[in-house]
Simulated assay, not measured.
Amino acid sequence: MSSAPDFSKIPVAILCGGKGTRLKEETEFRPKPMVMVGDRPMIWHIMKTYAHYGFQNFMLCLGYKGQMIREYFFNYDWNHNDVLLELGEKKVTKLNNGHEENWKVWMVDTGQETMTGGRLKRLASYIDKMDSDILLGTYGDGVCNVDIAKLLDYHYSHGKLATMTTVRPASRFGELVIEDNLVTYFQEKPQTSTGWINGGYFVLHRKVLDLIQGDDTVFEAEPLKTLAALGELAVYKHDGFWQCMDTYRELELLNKLHHSGKAPWQVWK
């Protein structure tokens, strides 16, 4: 019987380079993964979810305003610990352990205009340095409460090259049932009963990167289509919470959930 994989050695790639034009109220000033949900940026919430299951190696595909993500993590200890700063000697001493994150954060410039597949491809040389045949990957603008340990178990069980987490997002509109010109049933923004969509939270064998031609490759186009045609793209259906942050209204929803103290994605609490 093979031993359980060491999650801390499996890289997690997060796509952070897009311009997020549909959320221009925020992304005019910062990259989308740095938009705040509560008192922490979206990227932190995503990483914290993975870390809850033991993942520690995060490869951030930087692009648009990537320097802001660099600065956030370069200053992470400074901003989340009590410190003693000795001005004359320019010496900084950490006084406590103000956070529990023991993450390795690979910040990789993947270009300003590079497509999603191209961004993943640019990680290849770094992934090759790690003792893992697989990588996990997701987008920098969506949170969910998928059990990542079960997702990984499922991936190993079917032996395919890739697993995509699929979700059924809440409808943007209320659902009506009408009989004889009377509303007989109403539900405000229910989860759609059909129409599974790509929710991110992928598990990919290293070989998947070989299907990506270069910077202009959209991961959701030819690579995923090729995997599907080969019968190598499995789906993991997640019926639980999932929410992207494409619009300001969706950002407001995430903040409302956070401030309620019952945010479904915050599995670490």
Rank of each mutant, 00 (worst) to 15 (best):
K237T: 08
L253R: 14
I14E: 00
Q56E: 13
L60A: 03
P190F: 07
K48H: 13
T217N: 12
N102D: 15
V37Q: 05
F58W: 01
L224V: 15
K32Y: 01
W242E: 02
W78L: 14
T194H: 12
D180Y: 14
T114V: 11
N102F: 04
N181V: 13
K65S: 05
L136E: 02
K90T: 07
R30E: 06
W106S: 00
A4Q: 08
K104M: 04
P190E: 11
S8G: 04
W242Q: 00
G137N: 10
F58I: 03
Y76R: 05
M36H: 14
T21M: 12
G66F: 13
P264F: 13
Y72Q: 03
Y248N: 09
L62M: 03
E100P: 05
V208H: 07
V183R: 05
D153I: 01
V146E: 04
R30M: 06
G240M: 12
G140E: 01
C61Q: 08
C61V: 11
L161S: 06
L211K: 02
K129M: 12
D77H: 04
S132R: 04
H259A: 10
Y72L: 06
N181W: 12
E25F: 03
A228Q: 12
A263F: 13
V183A: 07
N181R: 14
L253W: 12
T217A: 14
T116D: 02
T93I: 14
K32I: 14
P41T: 03
G111A: 11
F7E: 05
E86M: 12
A13R: 01
V177N: 06
E71H: 09
L135K: 01
T166A: 10
E113L: 09
Q191R: 14
T93S: 10
I43W: 03
Y72S: 08
D6C: 11
L123T: 08
E179W: 05
D246I: 11
G98P: 06
L254K: 00
P190W: 11
S157F: 05
F74W: 11
M164G: 00
L204S: 02
V108N: 11
Y76E: 01
G142T: 13
A234T: 03
Y50K: 04
L60E: 00
D216R: 14
D246H: 09
C144N: 11
D215A: 15
N255E: 08
R40N: 01
H158G: 09
L87W: 12
E175C: 11
G18V: 01
V146G: 00
V167L: 02
T114H: 00
D39K: 10
M42K: 02
H45W: 14
I10E: 07
Y156M: 10
T138A: 11
E232P: 13
F29K: 03
K94L: 13
E232A: 12
W78Q: 13
R168Y: 05
Y201F: 15
L62A: 11
H258G: 08
L182M: 09
L227Y: 02
D216S: 15
H238W: 02
K269G: 12
G140L: 05
L211R: 06
P5W: 06
L211T: 09
I178L: 03
R40T: 07
K32Q: 14
M36L: 15
T194E: 09
S3K: 15
L120Y: 07
V37D: 02
N255I: 11
P5H: 04
A263H: 05
G117T: 05
Y248L: 13
Y156H: 07
L85Y: 15
V12I: 08
Q56L: 15
